[in-house]
Write a protein that binds this DNA or RNA. Structure first.
Lengths: 350, 350
DNA sequence: CTGTTAGCGCATTCAA
DNA sequence: TTGAATGCGCTAACAG
């Protein structure tokens, strides 16, 4: 119909017919059907964000970044929680292919590349978020976990700690592995033996943190500092310490990965490496949209965003904050300027 | 094609053709197109959850309840953040009509019924969540804010407080209004004058709480207790108190609406009325799905779920917890058994 | 049990 | 500047 032209402002239309159509639309309460449009155009204007748990404030913030960036270009976002389950993840991915979403932002439930490749094989562009997937050529956006853990550990070493317990996540998750590596690296460079750092692995949850902290406390000699590899783990570990009657930082020092948003916490208690979650979401989404638009370079991009150390009371250091030095950006010039501009602003507080 | 029959397991198919089709599907990497299916069947198997801010743990938890209940029946969920803006809300609602979602769960950005009616006029069932909308016949699921505020205030009154500052949300939001009413009601019944309760209104954010607390502190005589009408406000108000060098609860007692999830907080600091966010999402979604299935009764349902008082250190009371007595449920028998079964379990911790 | 016909609502292409 | 024809991929309703 001519109606289509009116709605999409395409082609030539006389003022008269345009108005006639517009009043008819208003009278009938007509609303165009996106499904039919998408069927025809093979574009859904829809992205998907597949993540492990929207309940985690880190992902929640990231999700806002994604949604804001997407809706700025008229795209909608479907959220999918995998709960770190590969079964659920697979279920969601096939669903997304069936729905013909234009692109997917994926926080992989495991460290394998298959899921991302699966989408690519079906012609759906993917950006992997937060975690590494070694065996797949795919765009990705994340922070440098090794570097962040390295700096956080340096803090502890400078304070004289020589027995550190790393309470980390599942060994299938790259961030959990990398944060242990970064911690060990710092201890090694400080000339400490391998037994200076003891690593524990469990779920990235409060319960996991609680359990790992119990195990760590049972070690002899007891660690003098805890390194929690994520925010939930930190909270769980702290509960263990409180129940054991141990004070932080007087009896045991703590540092952690991932900030808690300012809306949730009255004061900066934990010393953390805060990842720029909102910006990660934004950058990843813009990259994905650039891919869809054909604006991005053909090779596969990898954006490593800077994290920020925020000193809270838990480490025993005087309270201040600073950026990590290592601002890697291997995106070969892609939108780097815009990205870094954003990152001049503080990325979190606790 | 016969293919359709194989995929949908509808009608009769010989084992042989079925297998032939299935191998072909596997060979070709064929994936059915949901868009075309929806266009034909006029069903998208998609719900939408429109809320004000996914960053708030209350809504985050609610969203999980929605997603879990929806995906249990094969439905997907689109999330939309309105940031309390009616403009954004309207934009999203028209988008959802265009997308022909099967149903909408709506946390209205304002207290008017228009948005809900708009959807209903377009044949999309709606369940309103968390807030009242007086001028519209629509299903709704929420907690009793008046009752919750009443009980929380009673706690303060029992401790001898006679000057209470209610730090509430925007006057356009029903919960913000109701929580003030409940507080006033408790003071009235305790025989206190109108000046015993002083109400402040601002945004439901940390900043809002911070500002309101500053104003409240400036009053002469100073209030002896703060009632924060939501979790973010509580955190902001607490920051004000800390900056003013006032201790909680020694110098000023605090109670608040909305729990902070266990994963985020190491100990129960705030005394709160915790709303069963996850269950609210679940109940609302099941109600909506029952509507879609034609299983729900024809009249308009209103489910008022019980909240739970959790005693933390902030009020100055000994720490324990109990359910509110008032478990209203005006859902006329609808799934009430299942709902209440769920609610026997604790609904939050902090 | 299997295939055919037709149409969901839109936009591309071509004709008027 | 407008309209008519066509097909996106699927399934309801029939035939075979």
């Amino acid at each position: 119909m001519t109606v289509s032209r009116v709605i999409n402002r395409s082609g030539y239309i006389s003022h008269e017919t345009r108005e006639r159509v517009e009043t008819a639309i208003a009278d009938l309460g007509y609303v165009p059907n996106t499904l039919a449009r998408s069927l025809r155009s093979k574009k859904t204007k829809t992205l998907a964000l597949v993540l492990t748990d929207i309940t985690n404030p880190f992902f929640t913030t990231l999700a806002r970044g994604v949604e804001d960036a997407a809706s700025a270009q008229g795209f909608n976002v479907i959220f999918c929680n995998t709960d770190e389950s590969e079964i659920k993840q697979e279920k969601y991915l096939t669903m997304l292919v069936q729905k013909r979403v234009d692109g997917v932002l994926l926080v992989p439930a495991c460290s394998l590349g298959r899921p991302a490749c699966y989408l690519q094989e079906h012609g759906i562009p993917v950006v992997v978020l937060d975690r590494r997937v070694p065996d797949c050529q795919v765009d990705s956006v994340r922070c440098d976990s090794v570097q962040g853990a390295f700096e956080l550990t340096r803090l502890l070493l400078d304070l004289g700690h020589e027995r550190i317990a790393v309470l980390s996540g599942p060994t299938t998750v790259s961030t959990a592995v990398d944060r242990v590596i970064g911690c060990r690296k710092a201890a090694g460079e400080a000339g400490l033996g391998d037994d200076a750092v003891r690593a524990y692995h469990d779920e990235y949850t409060q319960e996991g943190g609680y359990r790992m902290a119990q195990k760590a406390l049972a070690a002899n000699p007891r660690p003098t500092a805890f390194f929690a590899a994520n925010n939930f783990v930190a909270v769980g570990a702290h509960r263990t310490l409180r129940e054991a009657g141990l004070r932080v930082p007087e009896d045991i020092a703590m540092v952690a990965f991932d900030d808690l948003p300012g809306g949730l916490v009255t004061e900066a208690f934990f010393t953390v490496v805060a990842q720029p979650a909102y910006e990660m979401g934004q950058v990843a989404t813009r990259l994905l949209l650039d891919r869809l638009a054909g604006t991005a370079p053909t090779e596969c991009l990898e954006a490593i965003l800077p994290a920020k150390v925020i000193i809270g009371r838990s480490s025993g250091l005087p309270v201040e904050s600073f950026f990590t030095e290592a601002v890697q950006n291997r995106t070969a010039g892609w939108d780097a300027a815009a990205t870094e501009r954003r990152l001049d602003q503080p990325v979190g507080n606790q």
